[in-house]
């Protein structure tokens, strides 16, 4: 097994009484896309800030590229897209990119050439000489995304990279992430959009209230989920099937989405029995599928009680 490129060892961070990150340990092996999942206020951004030396942990240690020391010393090999976006508003797009690349140790001329290449690739070539504040929010976000990759970092940390993007742009950026991963880059990606994480990430870690709830590959995490899951699609409305769903001997939980429903069966219940009862009830079925639980479902199951408790307590600073 290769040595981890990023390692968090029992890291803890407190802010004025509240615990933001609680004894968190992670390890990223080279070449993976690692998803850091959690509800708002779970401690994702605080964790990322500690990785990047923006915050110092109260306890525990962060190791980058197998070495102790400050992330700043590795800045040439690390890319960072903060959750709160922002660029110098009055600067020209290409100048901002060159400056930020210089901060990562890239030489000016190289930075300029690469910036123009990237802008071209993401359809912003015509905007290179314009001022940042003339760009739309989405375009600015793409510019900032570019700045994360210009110096060709080995480790890239993306905090909610697709938030606020339309599907076309989100797709374009996702393609970049995948392509870079094939090029050998390691990506740490924080998100609370489960569908994205499910498609993109090789490994996942779900945290809530600063604590790790589960981590591993998607398959590992699915195995931790209990019970059998069934998705039922209706030809029309739920109608008579509602009576069957209310039978607690068969169905433990229902997520009703209107056109279809996700069911978790009660322990020991037979899915065939459920199907029989549904047909007898006269409900018109379009689909009946035994399936693995979605990440979304697992996330809700794991995090649900935690966030409920969180809402009652005071929310800590940062996210």
């Amino acid at each position: 097994m290769t040595a981890p490129i990023l390692e968090l060892d029992h890291v803890t961070k407190r802010f004025a009484g509240t615990i933001a990150v609680d004894d968190l340990s992670l390890a990223l092996r080279p070449g993976v896309i690692y998803g850091l999942l959690g509800p708002n206020g779970a401690g994702k951004t605080t964790t990322i800030r500690m990785i990047l030396d923006i915050l110092l942990p109260d306890a525990g240690s962060v190791r980058l590229f197998g070495r102790d020391g400050l992330a700043r010393e590795h800045s040439a090999r690390v890319g960072y897209l903060p959750e709160e976006r922002g660029l110098y508003r009055k600067m020209r797009v290409v100048d901002v990119l060159v400056f930020l690349a210089e901060m990562r140790g890239l030489e000016r001329r190289t930075a300029r050439a690469r910036a123009l290449e990237w802008l071209d690739r993401l359809g912003l070539a015509a905007w290179a000489g314009r001022r940042v504040d003339e760009l739309s929010k989405g375009m600015q976000q793409k510019v900032q995304f570019i700045s994360t990759w210009l110096h060709e970092p080995a480790l890239v940390i993306l905090d909610e990279p697709f938030a606020g993007l339309d599907p076309v742009n989100a797709q374009a950026l996702k393609d970049v992430v995948l392509e870079r991963r094939h090029g050998g880059a390691t990506v740490l990606l924080s998100t609370h959009i489960m569908e994205q994480a499910e498609k993109l990430c090789d490994q996942l870690c779900i945290i809530a209230r600063g604590r790790k709830l589960v981590d591993g590959t998607l398959a590992d995490i699915r195995r931790t989920a209990t019970g059998q899951h069934v998705t039922i699609g209706f030809d029309g409305a739920v109608g008579a099937a509602a009576r069957v769903f209310a039978d607690r001997r068969l169905v433990a939980r229902v997520d009703d989405y209107g056109q279809y429903a996700e069911l978790e069966l009660a322990p020991g219940a037979d899915p065939q029995e459920l199907l029989r009862l549904l047909v007898e009830s006269g409900a018109r079925l379009a689909r009946f599928q035994l399936m693995e639980p979605s990440l979304h479902k697992i996330f809700l199951d794991l995090v649900g009680p935690e966030t409920a408790a969180d809402a009652r307590g005071a929310s800590g600073p940062g996210a």
Partner: peptide, 10 residues
Amino acid sequence: TRVVEVLVSS
């Protein structure tokens, strides 16, 4: 603009 986060990390 939070640019400072990126700057301070480098």
